[in-house]
Structure formats: C-alpha cells, structure tokens
Amino acid sequence: MALYNRVDGRLLKEKMLATPEKRVTISFYKYHHLSDPVAFRDQLYRDLEALGVLGRIYVASEGINAQISVPEQQFEAFRNHLYAIDWMNGLRLNVAVEDNGKSFFKLKILVRKKIVADGLDDSTFDVTNTGTHVDAEGFHKLADDPNTIIIDMRNHYESEVGHFQGAILPNVDTFREELQIAEDLMRDQKDKNLLMYCTGGIRCEKASAWMKHIGFKNVFQLNGGIIKYAQEIKEKGLGSKFIGKNFVFDERLGERITNDIIAVCHQCGKPCDDHTNCKNDGCHLLFIQCEDCKQQYNNCCSAECKDTIALPEDVQKELRRGINKGRQVFKKGRSENIRHNTR
C-alpha cells in the first residue's frame, strides 16, 4: 500500500468539488512525546485513508497538529479510532463553523521537527505548564477588565480580516516573530492579565507556556481558539467580541463569524475580506480580492500574472522551472506584484 498520494492535485480537487458526499471539517492538536514519529505517521496514514479522511497533518516527536475533513457517515468511526489511541482519548475536536465539506482534496501527513514552527528550545522550559484556559464567557469577563491586555497570536493576514475588539495585532509573518513581539510588549507589564488567542488553540499552548516561563503570572488563553469560541457564543446566545472572519488554512480560507467586513481588496481598495491565491502556478500569492477584480484579472494578482496564465501550459512550466517561491503573502507596502491603492 502506498503511503503517499501521487495523483495530480488538480484532478483530486475537481473530483472533490464534484462529489455530493457530505463531509465535516475538523481540526485538532495534541502535545505528546512520540518516540517514533515516522512509524506513527505511516500507521495513521493507513488508518485514515481507509476512512476516507482528507487533509493536512503534521506529526513530530512533540505530538500532532491536524486540519482534516471526514465523510459525515464515517465521523463516529473516525472519532472512535482516534480515541482508541490512549494519548488522544477524549481529545477536543474543533468542528468548522461555516463549512460545506470541500475544505481539502487529498490526505497529506508529514513528519516535521515541530508541529508548529516557534523557534523555541523545548528542553529549556516546561511546555505543559500552560496558561489558564478560558471559555467564551471567561474571555468576555477578562476582556472587560481594564487590567487585561489581549494579544492576537496569529499572522497579519489572519487578523486583517477578523480579530477580537481591543486586541493588539502584531504586523508579523510568522509565529516565531509573534512570540518575540508579545514578549517585548509585555516586558514591563507583568502585573497585567495577558489574554491570548489564535485559530484553534495550538499556538497559544506553546506561547502561554513560554510567557509563564519568562515570568508572567496571569496568563490566559482562549480554549479551543476562535473556532470553539464561535460555537460557544452561538450555543449560549452571547454577543460576539470577535468581528469579521476567522482565517483558516484550507480551501475555504475563512469562516465568517460576524457580518462585519473590516478589510479591503488589495487591488482596488473596496471593502472585501475574501482571500484567494493567485491563479498563476508560478506565483500563488495569497491576497484579498473582490469579485470585480477577480473578473478583471482572471483570478490573478496582477496584469503580468493574468498574461502568464494565457500562455500555453508548456510555456508556463518553462517560465517557472527551477523557481521555488515558498509561501508568498501580500503585505501592504511590501508587495511588488500587486498594483493597489488600498486605504
């Protein structure tokens, strides 16, 4: 049995979009010491592929981080299988808020050094000594306390489309930078309540443990992140202190929490919070694009990319041969590709 998917991704995406199968999008994580991450990864691939699971999972010696979709009819079997693994028994599963099940089109499980790139040496502190977890009501209470500082532990392109009111929104590209910003901001305010949040909770697990390690006493984190918060306020009929969209790392690129649109199109400046990836395979820039600009630029970030995708496929392949652009994200004032007049 092959332990990797070798089918063309475009074909898999077309198949996924065409199927009427109902699926559920789920994210979960767990810090746990794995003595043999490779063996665990291979067995997990076999088991999840048999259940029709799609998605992206990172496995490391420190645990697991997963964003997946599961066939609705296999959800119970999937959960039972997961909970049969002793260290994942009872694991919290964050179910997507706004979901049509078309979030992933293949199963990808990778072994990495860490399940989240944080730049920390885990041997220097207790990663299990995390901050106090608070639910939606607890978050609201702390947020209303003038002695509380709220920090968004996500990247700039995530907070640009949605965030908690009154939160500090560091203008950074990586979680590693985020940690340093949080440390610097709070250095002289160790008597304050430090309240952190992220998408599903995983970044705050490590961040809160680090902040406690360097001397902060009143460290809190939103349990289950924005995803769980959105479910709780809906169930309990609470007003939302989060405005806009929650950016997610799958095909949807966002879950709407409130109707507020707080971002603008990166090409024309009109109110918009819909992320997209440039259609040019040699670019794939992640940016915000409104429907009018989508039509004008044919799903591309620029006239140059629009012209490129009009070329024959073999010419496009030759143009991008040997080029590895990595993850390209639009940032105001730092993009040479987008011609924009955002406000």
Rank of each mutant, 00 (worst) to 15 (best):
T124K: 15
D145M: 09
G9E: 12
G282S: 06
Q295N: 14
R339Q: 14
K245V: 12
D118R: 00
S335D: 14
N280M: 04
G138T: 09
P170T: 07
P20E: 11
C300T: 15
G200T: 09
C204G: 07
R6N: 11
E72P: 03
T25W: 02
K317S: 10
V38Y: 07
R10E: 14
R10S: 10
D36A: 09
Y45N: 00
H33S: 13
D152R: 03
I168R: 01
R79W: 01
D260T: 05
L93T: 04
D184P: 02
L17K: 13
Q231R: 15
L169N: 13
K102G: 01
C300N: 14
T128M: 10
E98R: 09
G131E: 09
F125S: 03
G201N: 04
L120S: 06
V127T: 14
N171G: 03
P20Q: 08
A117C: 05
G244F: 07
Q328L: 13
L311K: 15
N100G: 04
G244V: 03
N155D: 11
I181E: 10
D36Q: 11
I85S: 05
M1N: 11
A303T: 13
S61A: 13
R252I: 08
A207F: 02
D152M: 01
R79C: 00
I150T: 09
L120F: 13
Y58N: 01
V248D: 07
S208I: 03
T128F: 13
N171R: 06
E291S: 13
E14N: 04
H133L: 11
I309E: 09
F242T: 06
G63L: 05
N277P: 01
Y197K: 00
P312K: 07
Q296T: 15
K102M: 09
M211T: 10
A207P: 04
F330N: 04
G9A: 12
K190S: 11
P71H: 03
A182C: 15
C198T: 05
G166A: 06
N89I: 03
A66S: 09
N193T: 10
D292I: 12
I109W: 10
M16L: 11
I68S: 03
K108N: 11
H81V: 00
L91E: 01
E183S: 13
K15A: 15
N324F: 12
L110I: 13
Q289R: 06
L12Q: 09
V264H: 06
V7Q: 03
P312Y: 08
K114C: 03
F242Y: 14
N100L: 02
V172Y: 02
I26R: 04
N277H: 15
P37T: 10
S302C: 08
G224M: 02
N218C: 04
R41L: 00
L311E: 08
F220V: 02
D191Y: 04
C204R: 01
E304F: 12
E14Q: 14
E98I: 11
L222V: 11
E76Y: 05
F249M: 03
Q267C: 10
Q328T: 13
K325M: 11
Q189F: 12
G269N: 05
F75M: 11
L48S: 06
D36I: 04
A143G: 08
A143M: 06
L34C: 06
Q267E: 08
I257Y: 08
V70Y: 06
N246K: 04
L311Q: 14
I261V: 15
K192H: 14
E205T: 00
K190H: 07
I243Y: 10
R23C: 06
E98V: 13
R6M: 07
I181L: 01
I149W: 03
